[in-house]
Nucleic acid binder design. Structure first.
Lengths: 148, 148
DNA sequence: ATGACACCTAGAGTAAACTCTAAGTATTAT
DNA sequence: ATAATACTTAGAGTTTACTCTAGGTGTCAT
């Protein structure tokens, strides 16, 4: 099976511009073109697009994805480089999730506080309620830094 | 207490360029300047910088942070807008964490697979091992899309 | 009072990942 | 045959958040 760029747009949600851009950046080195230059994407190309999406979601830049694809095409001699890439990425994702957890707590505190402030119609009153003072102390090292 | 821009650079880790840029963008509307135009940051300004960092970490753009600061300065009439902002942000962070969890599973699978591939010196052999086929099936809806 | 250093402004430059434009060719439907 | 639609290329423009440069002023220790 092969697909026109329009069909791939529908399947992937990427724009035709973006697909051509990816190709120019070396992310799709196997896309075939017919005699008049029209692209015909294979199922293999679609699988690459799925993998590219995953790598992008994990935070890789386009040039890093290109590097990965080059390694893949060089075969088993680059297995350890590819292992390192996934290992590093996993560590970065772990840090990112830890970071988001911290931020989430702060934002949730603000949400609760403002919900109460809206209820009583006054931010200072809500801020000074015992339960919010208590919560803030529990959540933050330097609670005064979080009054804004 | 008040602080020169150099002291704030040391305290926050932000560059002097960035601090002036934030001010230009309306994120620090209260920074005072002496007769010769030199900035003197107050403790209040430092607290704002802490809050700005949190909002940035949560993914807000600079113009959204400026909006929040404007609402804050308008007082209790904007409490509900600020509540909405934190509510939306909390929802976005929840989605982002869910997204990262999915990506993490895929990357972890790749890491395991490549660790085995490096051990045996061949990607195809590792890919075809029963336990990896099994794991892939468990992790992905469309497992073939993940061979790249 | 002289050199080092911190600070100022306005505005230009950068990086990443698109996103769009212009000008043209090819295919398809009626 | 003609119009609409889809496709092609090269290259310019956009957005965000900085980041840096140029050219200058102000402060301070010796």
């Amino acid at each position: 099976m092969s697909y026109s760029i329009g069909e791939v747009v529908k399947k992937t949600g990427l724009s035709a511009h973006t697909l051509r851009y990816y190709e120019k950046e070396g992310l799709l080195p196997f896309v075939k073109k017919n005699a008049s230059g029209v692209r015909a994407y294979s199922d293999e190309d679609l699988r690459w697009l799925t993998m590219i999406e995953c790598l992008k979601d994990s935070g890789l830049q386009i040039k890093e994805i290109r590097q990965y694809i080059e390694w893949f095409n060089e075969g088993d001699s680059t297995l350890s480089q590819r292992l390192s890439l996934f290992e590093n990425r996993r560590k970065i994702l772990e840090k990112e999730m830890a970071r988001l957890t911290v931020v989430m707590n702060k934002i949730r505190f603000k949400e609760l506080l403002y919900r109460e402030a809206v209820r009583v119609g006054n931010l200072d009153v809500a801020t000074n309620e015992r339960r919010f003072k208590h919560l803030k102390k529990k959540l933050f090292e330097s609670p005064d830094d979080f009054d804004k």
